[in-house]
Design a protein around this nucleic acid. Sequence first.
DNA 1: CTTATCACG
DNA 2: ACGTACGTGATAAGA
Length: 884
Amino acid sequence: MPKNKLLLIDGNSIAFRAFYAVQNYESFKTKTGLHTNAVLFFNNMLESILEKETPTHVLIAFDAGKTTFRHAFFEDYKAGRSKTPGEFKEQMPYIRELIEAQGIEHYELMDYEADDIIGTLAKQVASDEFEVVVISGDKDLTQLAEENIRVEVTSRGVSELVTYTPEFIKEKYGLEPLQIIDMKGLAGDNSDNIPGVTRVGEKTALKLLHEYGTVEGLYEHIDDLKASKMKENLINDKEQALMSKRLATIDIKAPIDVNVENLTYEGKNLEKLIPFYRQMEFKQLLSKLDTSGLGENSEPMEEVKYQFIEKYEDISEEMFGPNMSFYVETLDKNYHTAEVEAVAWGSKDTIYVALKDEALHSEKMKKWLEDTNQTKNVYDAKANYVLLRRYDIELSGIAFDSLLGAYLIDTNDKSEDLAALAFNHEYFLLESDEAIYGKGAKMAIPEDQIISEHLARKIIALEYLKPVLMEKLEDKEQTDLFFEMELPLSKVLGKMESTGITVNAQRLQEMKQEFAIRLKEIEERIYEQAGEEFNINSPKQLGVILFEKMELPVIKKTKTGYSTAVDVLEQLKDQAPIVSDILDYRQVAKIQSTYVEGLLKVIQSDGKIHTRYVQTLTQTGRLSSVDPNLQNIPVRLEEGRKIRQAFVPRSADWQIFSSDYSQIELRVLADIAKDEHMRDAFLEGQDIHTSTAMRVFGVETPEEVTGNIRRQAKAVNFGIVYGISDYGLSQNLGISRAEAQRFIDTYFEKYPDIKTYMEEIVRDAKDKGYVETLWHRRRYLPDINARNFNIRSFAERTAINTPIQGSAADILKIAMIEMAKRLKEEKMEATMLLQVHDELVFEAPKSEIPKLEALVKDVMENAVALSVPLKVDSSTGETWYDAK
DNA sequence: CTTATCACG
DNA sequence: ACGTACGTGATAAGA
């Protein structure tokens, strides 16, 4: 019969170590703002110990009561400890809950410490039949070590354990385990405020104990010691030494009421652990749990039933119907070029799977996908629109998209695939793509049956998700946002992505040559001034040259060394001409590598660039653009702006047309905050920054507003939108903080409604835990009640900014949908190409431009009705550069 | 795979 | 007193 093994864990000390296992515990937090770092690391540590020790019995002991029997003879026991942080305290109840869910007993005894419970039980139980393992973050426990008691002490946070057996203690200190108490008696312990003997530390104590064995032994022979300061101290502190020893002695006769037979460990309690992990938002841990046998979404899955389609000719009309789910698998994220690995469709009990793109060659499939009345339920509608278009299929009749739905429900959802998304919505039956295909270099297609089953299960997950997500959308009043805005938009965006924008590669090649020559020139000048060659692109090497070799003053540092960012270099420009050259080099090198070479690399065989808009990423509702990013093509500096000359219309007699909203965020703010002064300025068509300048700086007429004053007012307006701070504004304007604060004070005095809005939205966010746009797009702000000033302030600024930036994003989305509709109705050739947050870019036959201009203006300005007018500025040109 | 830098709204 | 503006993506270095 295998030996029994009792695991005894010091709950308090491990919890404490777990809490301090990470520096920044603010990033471990639930949506409602509860910290979870200690719970998480406690859990991880517990699991790793259980796995390593495979105990038959487990108990976790906790301290209880404010005073223990130790306080009875030493008031100041554990005094002077810094207060435990509230972020730690709030997690203690959850740690107990975790322990229960892990299927483990915990115990505490009034006025006793965990040490005493552990000591008593360990000594009771340890025998040749029962091995005992003690886990603690505290070395005190090592006094318990004996033949059948092993003590493990954490080191380096909670990641490693050091084993204390009698042999180890002998080797390390030359002591028996029990002499650990004598060592504490003499040397004391700062953390528990055990005094020990004055000026005696670990080293002296060891020396004395090697000689005399115990504290008592030492005092018996105290007269043998040579006269010394130490001897005096020992004599003076005799009582204190004896008391200290008593304090450090673990009570192995505590009146505990625990029977080891009740401590058997039989594994996790999944019924408790799953909801608990969910509450803690431990998604990683959840996904690793074996959830088989737990309710209907986690029933052990017998083999999934599906019909395997060998050849597209085998596809028949009976295989299709309305209200089915559809899924196309690609391994590469870029659906413009990705190869199709498998296609699946069907409903809960009838599922069809075909490998590769076989199914997409079926005319019946095409007919079903294109039929608006044959509704389909998908994951990532936009990807499907674009990908199917490559097979000459115009997807239509999309009734639901789980990816889009989950994003609206929680913009924070970082699910990498359908399995993770489903998991977040209580569906546990789908394996992750990573588990099926692997990742990185090891990514590969498994055998036919594995991938087919995986796809079939995806269909089941999609069928499950639709009603679940719909209900959640309804709860949040987001059904309109979903069905009227995001879902129609996905079709419009898909069209734009498929269309792509024509790029003049030759123009880019010319620029590449020119820039290469210029870089060479600047490079040589830099090397000459530096007196050596080095990698200018390396901030590290550049820092050495500028701040060590050339001894320029260090203005700012980064975590890793000297900062060489623009604002720093700008300040150093006058001190050494090399700095200007470096700035030039940086500017040109950026344009060359990111834009000229970067764009050349992504021109497809059709001579166009096809970006992908990520519709489910930003926290505010904006789009983002990847592969390549076409939303950050240079415009501010002439040098870079020339890149836009390479963006051209599809044919010679067409033109590029661009329209952008003027001051859309400030208009949205004026509307949301109901500020009459700002609203009047917009209603009267005034220049908003001039108007702000007049009010804030007390200028009588617009003519008197100088360029500089307007610039400052503009910075204040920007600051307002971002959730202003004196520091931020002072940095931006290069003024003092006090001055910046005066600007802000005056601004709020002149625009009291803006001030009220900011206060109200922050209060509202603290109250509800989230903020919303005008169209109910929601962003949760778990940090809004954080105790840490910086973290809380950041959340407060976000609360101010998100409804503004987000509502502006909503407006452009509405305009885009309407624009696509009108272009179709009017049967125009003009095509929408790009969206850059407040700007839409089109291409159109020259002859159509006047009509397009009127139409775009009408659609954009009337997309929504705010209490202030919306205004657009438009321009046309032979290239994107010329449309300015 | 993280850090610093810099491009855009 | 605390130390920052809001939202993104791509590139090159250097662990």
